[in-house]
Design a protein around this nucleic acid. Structure first.
Lengths: 166, 166
DNA sequence: CCGTGTTAGTTGTAGAGACAACTTTGTCGC
DNA sequence: GCGACAAAGTTGTCTCTACAACTAACACGG
């Protein structure tokens, strides 16, 4: 038997739904205008930039970006066509492909990072109290746990414990 | 000068990013499998079902679903082609179009609602304490305020005050 | 090593959204 | 009541994503 939502649950859910709809659109729009990148493309470049040798295997990159492999494959191909990443066969496993951030990709990322971080602050963090930032980390962590029980996309968990110890 | 994210902000943001990516996909997937609807299509039907006469003008429906008008126009046309809604010219304003939930649309919605609510519980609400549900409403409300300062999509605000009074 | 199954990734195709251009109707000043 | 501007939708095009089918390479039991 389905238990329906009470008033408070409904409010929380409707508002979350609004954020789910509007926030990605807002972030995409800012990055598109200022840098010619989608939010997802930005994320791909950012994750590569933090990897050793600015290089990751497709599967590892898919994990870090919460993406499926087919989606990532298309995106990386397009990024390569634009000269932002290189694709190299992996020496240790001939099935695998390494994606590496190119010099052009690096400078594109460096140029667009401030605007993106500003947008994240403007839309999310600046609207919250420090306490709420901690609560958000807890809540989002709990939801991720449901969405991804096996931890397939676990890169954003820094452990099962609270984001803010104590 | 851009202020970068500290550890706690970064954790919160990365986790929120994961939710933004995975939750819509999970909800879409459930509804597609069980009801042949996208989450957005479900929302359109649900909003119509709560309106007087199960009818809304396109603009009002766009507001309630956080959608742009072009997007809504395409979706409603497809829903009409599938017999789930009717489109009627508005008598009071010849520019306007009224979308009305059909009998078939109503029964489709009724049939798919329990599965959808269960999914919302499973992925989100059941993972949170009652206190966290309140916090989520506050946080999502604050973010929506940034995303939509003029209140264009304000239907999900039940006022500027806290979701949980007191 | 040979067959079976698994893993890594790519590709084809079809559907959904973004954005801009456009049509039609209403509104308002004069 | 005419002309200019705003509002309400629609449509076309292009891009991106999902899903499924596919290829190629590894693993490993016999």
């Amino acid at each position: 038997m389905t238990r329906w939502l009470d008033e408070e649950e409904r409010t929380a859910w409707l508002r979350l739904g609004g954020v789910l709809e509007l926030l990605p659109a807002a972030l995409d729009s800012q990055l598109r205008q200022d840098a010619g990148l989608t939010h997802f493309e930005y994320l791909v470049l950012a994750m590569l930039s933090e990897a050793p040798g600015r290089t990751l295997r497709m599967t590892a990159l898919a994990t870090r970006t919460n993406a499926t492999l087919p989606r990532l494959s298309h995106v990386v191909r397009r990024l390569q066509e634009r000269g932002l990443v290189d694709r190299l066969p992996c020496p240790e496993d001939a099935r695998a492909t390494n994606a590496r951030l190119s010099e052009h990709g690096w400078s594109t990322l460096v140029a667009s990072a401030p605007g993106h971080v500003d947008a994240v602050r403007r839309y999310v963090l600046d609207a919250l109290t420090p306490e709420q930032v901690g609560q958000l980390a807890e809540i989002a962590g709990a939801v991720l746990q449901q969405l991804d029980p096996e931890g397939r996309f676990a890169s954003t968990f820094t452990g099962r414990g609270p984001a803010t110890a104590g």
